[in-house]
Amino acid sequence: MPPADAAPLLASDLPYPLACRILHFTPHSRMKRHASPWAELNFAVSGIMEIGIGGMTYLSPPQYAIWIPPHVEHCCQNEGEVHYACIDIPAAACAGLPDKPCTLEISPVMRAILADFERRGISYPDTPEDRRMAQIVIDQARQARAYASYLPSATDPVLAPILSALQRRPGDKRGAAHWAATAGITERTLLRHCQQRLGMSFNEWRQRLRVVSALGMLDDGKPVQTVARALGYSTPSAFIAMFQRLTGESPDSARRRGPGGACAAMPRENRVVQASDATRGR
C-alpha cells in the first residue's frame, strides 16, 4: 500500500518476456517521477489511476490501459483507492507498439490472462506455457486501439469552448447541431473536427465524459437513479447500459466500493484530463 510520494516499485530483473506487478494504492498515494529501461502497460483492476507524463495527465479507468514506452519519465497519483496491474515489457519486445505514451483498450483475453497470473502469483512467467500466455498479452497490446487519452481534450479554437461547456454540464442533452451553431459552423464540420482532433466521434467523447462524471458521483455515494438524472438519462436502465458497456461493470458495483473506491477523477476544471490530438499511429 504505497504511501504518499513513495519510491517506485520496479521489476528487480529484466522483465523477460514480461513482468507482472499487481499493486494496491491507498487513497491519496503518490509515486515519485521515474523512468524505466523497459516499457510499462498500466491498467486499473478497480478504481481509476492517474499517471503524469510530460505535463499531461493520463486517465485509466477499468478496460483502458496507459502505455508508457521505455525511458519515458512519469509519476502516479490517485485520490481514491486503486488496485492496478503494471506490466513491464522489455524494449526489445516493443516493436509494433506505440512509440509515444497513449491509452490502449484492454481486451477480455488480456484481462483474463493477467487475472490468472495474479491468482497464481506469477510475477515472471518462466514455464513454456506461461511464456506463451505472456506473448499473447504483448500481441494483444499491439492490436489494441490507441487513444491519446481516455478523455482527450483539444486546444482547437472551435472544439475547446464546446468541450469546456460540456465538462461543466455533462448532463446537457443538446446535440451536435446545437453546439455547432454556437461555434458558427455546420454540424458536419464539428463532427469532422472531433474525429481529427479527438480521434473519436462527438457522441463517443460525450459518453466517456459521462462515465468519468458518473464515477465521481458514485464515489460520493449518490444513488444510481440520481446519477442517471444528473447526466441527462430519462431512465436508470439506459444509463446503466451505457456505463456497463464502457467500463465493464455496473454502477452499483462501482458505488459499493464506497468513498474513494470508485473514481479519482471528477469533472472539475482543475481535474480535466489534458491531452494533445489523439494518437492512432503505431
Rank of each mutant, 00 (worst) to 15 (best):
Met133Asn: 15
Ile138Pro: 10
Ser164Gln: 09
Thr186Trp: 15
Val137Tyr: 15
Ala91Phe: 03
Ile136Cys: 08
Ile162Ala: 11
Glu187Met: 15
Arg142Lys: 07
Gln77Ser: 08
Gln77Ile: 05
Arg142Asn: 07
Ile113Glu: 03
Tyr150Gly: 10
Leu151Tyr: 14
Gly171Asp: 03
Ile162Asn: 15
Arg111Lys: 06
Pro90Thr: 01
Pro125Ser: 09
Ala144Val: 06
Val137Glu: 12
Arg111Trp: 08
Gln143Val: 08
His193Ile: 09
Ala91Pro: 07
Pro170Gly: 09
Ala148Gln: 10
His74Lys: 13
Ile87Thr: 01
Met133Thr: 11
Met110Tyr: 11
His178Arg: 12
Leu191Pro: 05
Ser164Asn: 11
Met110Trp: 15
Cys75Asn: 10
Ala180Arg: 08
Gln167Ser: 15
Arg132Ser: 01
Pro108His: 10
Ile136His: 03
Cys102Glu: 02
Ile138Trp: 02
Asp130Trp: 14
Thr127Asn: 08
Asp126His: 04
Val137Pro: 13
Ile106Ala: 05
Arg145Pro: 03
Lys100Asp: 02
Cys76Ile: 12
Ile106Leu: 12
Ala144Pro: 03
Ala160Ser: 13
Ala148Asp: 04
Asp139Asn: 12
Arg120Thr: 00
Met133Val: 03
Ser149Tyr: 14
Ala160Arg: 14
Pro98Ala: 01
Ala148Ile: 02
Val158Asn: 13
Arg169Ile: 03
Cys75Ala: 12
Gln77Tyr: 14
Ile162Cys: 09
Leu166Ser: 06
Ile122His: 00
Cys102Asn: 02
Met110Leu: 14
His74Gln: 15
Pro170Trp: 10
Pro161Leu: 05
Gln77Asn: 08
Asp156Thr: 14
Leu190Met: 14
Ile185Glu: 09
Arg111Ile: 00
Asn78Gln: 02
Asp88Ser: 14
Tyr84Gly: 00
Ala160Trp: 10
Arg120Pro: 10
Pro157Leu: 14
Asp130Thr: 07
